[in-house]
Amino acid sequence: MKKRKQRVNSFMVNGLLLFLCLVWTVPTFGLLMTSFRDRDVVSKTGWWTVFTRPDQAELTLDNYEQVLSGKTITLVDSKGNQQTVKGDNLTRAFLNSLTVSIPAVVIPILIASFAAYGFAWMDFPGRKVFFILVVALLVVPLQISLIPLLRDYGRLELTGTFLAIWLAHTGFGLPLSVYLMYNYISQLPRSIIESAIIDGCSHFGVFWKLILPLSVPAIASLAIFQFLWVWNDLLVALVFIGSKPGVEVLTQRLLYLIGSRGQDWHLLCAGAFISMALPLMVFISLQRYFVRGLLAGSVKG
């Protein structure tokens, strides 16, 4: 009797779970399939026809080639008209995203780690007040800073430079980073630091040789957060990079694709997938740290 009940239970549990997983996965899967389909069929039939009518599937890598190379492609559509379609150069945007992301991850974490160590283990006037201020800044939505910062950037001729956006991401990411790093660093055993100081290490040495190596788990979590945040960001890029073509990042480029080629599904899908590839890879391979980070505190939004 008992056994039977449990089996029904587990059947229901697994069934419901499977259903939810399907709902969550199918949209992405659809995008993936579409990105491999020929442009002619994409806008005519649903992607699921790849499975329902496999004979007409016509899978291709052309979409990716077009999106990445940016070369102009001449096509003949079904009515026999010639059409030239300019591809999109997402490679450049991809590199730009990389250029934005890596320093925009490393810089705030480094600065936050220094600050967290200072707040946790050094004594100076105003320590408490400053720390409370930093944490209080968690409430400030970055929207509130956009206008004043844009003015500063205009005056300093920083708009559209990498430095501008690194600093912006650093500024917006710092409260959370300091908060999380402080949580971690302040919980390291005091005696380790004192031991190093007795051994003759300066605070600077303690920081580089002890705190940073010991904080790797926390740094990893934070780095994934910050990376996903920066890589996926649209607003900060729109505001501080604007439409400077050489510096545009992936999300901007993708937005442009949506706007100008809303109907070119084949390009859009390939482009979207390119923009997701790196974060998905980082995410899946470092998921453990990400979860740990999530559990450690709140999340920036």
Partner: peptide
């Protein structure tokens, strides 16, 4: 100095 929790550098 020798500490209670050893304070070894992990």
């Amino acid at each position: 100095m020798v500490f209670q929790n050893y304070a070894l550098y992990p």
